[in-house]
C-alpha cells in the first residue's frame, strides 16, 4: 500500500518531501567537499570579498590605537560558536600583537570563556613563535582577569572606577600570581578612557550590557578621530541587532559573523585605500584615510578557509527553499503528475 501511495504522488509532492536524512547527507557531502577543496586549492580559492564600512571602520580604528596602549577584550564566547568567534578573536590578536598593543581579557558571560580565550591566545602566540616573531608574554603584554558572573554590575563598576573594578584579581606573573594592577598592562590605566579601545567578542547579547553602561569620551589617536571606544565582533545571529547600534554611533566599528572574519582578513592583506595592497579596498566615506595592511603575512586564515564552504552551503539552502516552493506550486496547479 505504501508503495502504491508513493507511486501516486505527483512530482510536485515528491519535490517537497525529500527524507530528512537525505537532506542531511547532501549537506554533509557539500560542506565536506568544499572544505577539502579549499584546503587543497589554497590561494586559488581565495574568494573576493568587499568589506563594508562597519568592518573598515573597525579595522582602521584598531590599526590606529597607539602602540603600547591597553585594549580591553571582553571575550564572551565558547567553542559553541568557534566557527565565527574564534576567527574574529584570532584576527584581532594578530593585529594587536603585530602592533605591540597590550590587552586584558575577561568574560562577563560564560565560565568556559576565559579558558577558551587563553587557548586562542596560546595558538596565535605559537604561530608567531614558529615564524620567529616576538613572543607575546602573559603579564608583560597581556593579562587574564577571569569570569564575572554579574555582567551588569561589573560593567557599572568598570565605568565608575576601573582601578577598583578588578581589585583583588591576580594573574600569573614570572614570580607567581600578583595583583593585576601591578602588571604593565594595567599599571597606567586610571580611568575607563585611558583604555585604547574596549572590544566585545560575543555570541550573545552582552554588547547590550556594555552599551547600556559604558560611556566613552571622544578621543584622537594622532590624526585619527574616535567618537566611541566601544567596538563589537559578534556572531551572525546577533548581527542585525548590533548593526542597529553601529548605525546609531554607539560602536566605533563592527565585525559580523564569518563574513566579518573574511572582511578582516581581506583588510589585513590589502589595507584601506592603500595603494600597496594587492587589491584596493575603497572607503568611500573618507578617501583621504589610508590604513596599511600586511601583504604576504599570515592574514588569510580561518575565515578564508571556511568562505567557499559558506558559499556552497548557502547555495544549497537557497536551492532547498526553491525546490520546496516549486514543489508546492506544481502540486497546487496539478502539474507534474506522473513525472
Amino acid at each position: 500500500m505504501a508503495d502504491l501511495a508513493q507511486e501516486e504522488r505527483t512530482f510536485g509532492e515528491k519535490l517537497q518531501s525529500l527524507p530528512r536524512q537525505v537532506l542531511y547527507l547532501i549537506l554533509i557531502v557539500v560542506i565536506s567537499a568544499s572544505v577539502i577543496a579549499s584546503k587543497f586549492a589554497g590561494p586559488a580559492l581565495v574568494l573576493p570579498n568587499k568589506p563594508g564600512n562597519n568592518a573598515i571602520e573597525f579595522y582602521a580604528t584598531v590599526m590606529n590605537v597607539p602602540e603600547g596602549s591597553t585594549v580591553a577584550i571582553q571575550s564572551d564566547w565558547t567553542n559553541s560558536t568557534r566557527g565565527e568567534s574564534a576567527g574574529q578573536l584570532e584576527s584581532l590578536l594578530r593585529i594587536l600583537m603585530r602592533r605591540n598593543v597590550k590587552f586584558m581579557v575577561y568574560s562577563l558571560a560564560d565560565p568556559q570563556a576565559p579558558q577558551v580565550a587563553r587557548d586562542t591566545i596560546a595558538r596565535i602566540t605559537l604561530e608567531r613563535k614558529l615564524k620567529g616573531e616576538r613572543e607575546y608574554k602573559r603579564w608583560d603584554d597581556w593579562i587574564s582577569l577571569g569570569f564575572f558572573p554579574n555582567g551588569e554590575g561589573t560593567a557599572k563598576s568598570i565605568q565608575s572606577d576601573i582601578r577598583k573594578a578588578f581589585k583583588g584579581k591576580r594573574d600569573v606573573s614570572p614570580e607567581g600570581p600578583r595583583d593585576v594592577y601591578q602588571s604593565p598592562v594595567l599599571k597606567n590605566i586610571q580611568t575607563l578612557d585611558d583604555l585604547g579601545l574596549y572590544i566585545n567578542i560575543t555570541a550573545s547579547k552582552t554588547i547590550d550590557v556594555l552599551i547600556e553602561r559604558l560611556k566613552f569620551k571622544p578621543a584622537r589617536f594622532g590624526d585619527f578621530e574616535v567618537k566611541n571606544k566601544l567596538g563589537s565582533m559578534c556572531t551572525g545571529v546577533m548581527g542585525p541587532e548590533t548593526v542597529n547600534y553601529y548605525s546609531a554611533g554607539l560602536l566605533f566599528g563592527l565585525v559580523v559573523g564569518l563574513n566579518g572574519v573574511v572582511e578582516m582578513e581581506t583588510l589585513m592583506e590589502n589595507g584601506v585605500n592603500w595603494p600597496e595592497g594587492k587589491k584596493t579596498v575603497e572607503y568611500a566615506k573618507d578617501k583621504q584615510l589610508v590604513v596599511p595592511g600586511w601583504t604576504g603575512k599570515q592574514n588569510y586564515a580561518r575565515g578564508t578557509s571556511y568562505y567557499f564552504a559558506l558559499h556552497t552551503g548557502m547555495a544549497l539552502l537557497i536551492l532547498a527553499v526553491l525546490a520546496g516552493n516549486i514543489g508546492m506550486w506544481l502540486a497546487r496547479s496539478g502539474k507534474g503528475k506522473n513525472a
Binding site: 549537506l27 554533509i28 560542506i31 565536506s32 568544499s34 572544505v35 577539502i36 584546503k39 559553541s80 560558536t81 568557534r82 566557527g83 565565527e84 574564534a86 556572531t235 551572525g236 545571529v237 548581527g239 542585525p240 559580523v256 559573523g257 564569518l258 563574513n259 578557509s305 571556511y306 564552504a309 559558506l310 552551503g313 548557502m314 539552502l317
Partner: peptide, 19 residues
C-alpha cells in the same frame, strides 16, 4: 544571518574532522 552562523558552525566541524 542566522543561516550564516549555523552553517559556519557546521563548516567548522567539517574542517575539524577532515582537515
Amino acid at each position: 544571518n542566522t543561516v550564516m552562523t549555523r552553517f559556519t558552525l557546521l563548516i567548522d566541524r567539517m574542517y575539524f574532522i577532515w582537515i
